[in-house]
Amino acid sequence: MEKFLASIDRRYIYIVLLLVVLFPLIRPIGLPISISSWTESFYAVIDQLQAGDIVVMSIDYSPSGGPDVGPQAVAIFDHLMAKNVKVIGVSFLAEGPPQLQQIINPYMEGRGKTYGVDFVNLGYAAGLETAIAAFNADMKRAFPVDFFNTPTNTIPLMQSVTDANDVKVVMNFATGIPGPAEWVRQLAGFSPDILIGVVTVMGPQTEPYYQSGQIKGLLSGLRSAAEYEVRAGMPGSAAAGMDAQSLGHVVIILAMALGNLAYFLGRKGGAK
C-alpha cells in the first residue's frame, strides 16, 4: 500500500486537480458563502458613505495577483458607483493604472457616469512609500496629469481635494509593496478610514492592523471578494469561482492525507 502511495506520479495529481477545478466552473454547485467579520466591517464602512463623498482607490496589485485581488476592487467599485460615491483611482505600482482602467472601463461610456466627475484614473507615481506620502500631502502635485495626460487641476473631481484629509476613505488593493504597512504609516495624522484588500497569503500578516483598529476593514483574496459580492447583493465572478476554490482545497487536503498515510505506513514498515 505504502509503495503504491509513494509511487503515485505527480501528473495524476495535476490532472485530478485540473478536472476538479474545471467541473464547478462549468456546472456550478452553489455552495453557501458566509460573511466574515473582516468583510462585514469593510462593507459597513462603504455602506455608510453618502452620495457625493470622495474616496481613494489605490490599485497596487501585480497582474499575477490580479485574479485574487482584482475581483475585490471590481466589487467595491461597482458598489461605490451604485451609491454615487466619487472615486479617485491611483497607483504606486507601474502595472496598476491599466488594471484600474479595466475596472472603470464599463463606466467610461454609459451607465450614467462621467470620467473626471464621478471617477478618475490618476495613473502611476514612482517612489513607493515616499510617493504615497507626497500624494497624501498634495494630490495634484504628486499627480500633475492623469492617466490620459489631462492636467489634474482641470479635472472637475480634483477641484475639491487637496490632501488626504479631503477624502472619506482610502482603499489599498495590494499584493506586496506598497501595501497595507506603507498606507497605514503614511496616513497617520490624516483623517480618512483605511480599508485594505490583499492577496490571500497577505491576509494573516495584515490582520494585526485590523485588530488594532488602524484599518477598518480587510478583504483577503478571492474568498473575501465573493463574500463582498454576496453582502452587497451583486454576485459576480468571485462568487462564481468559490465552488472551484472549495473543491481545489479538498483535493489538496486529500493529497496531504494520502502523503501522510504513505509516510506513516512507510515508517511502520521500516520499524518492523
Binding site: I8, R10, I13, Y14, L17, V21, S62, P63, S64, G65, G66, P67, D68, G248, V251, I252, I253, A255, M256, L258, G259
Partner: peptide, 19 residues
C-alpha cells in the same frame, strides 16, 4: 503573469502530497 501565478496551485498540490 496570471498563468505563472496560477501554476503554483499544481506545485502546492504536489508538494502537499510529497513534502
Amino acid at each position: 503573469s496570471a498563468a505563472m501565478f496560477s501554476l503554483l496551485v499544481f506545485f502546492i498540490a504536489s508538494a502537499s502530497f510529497r513534502a
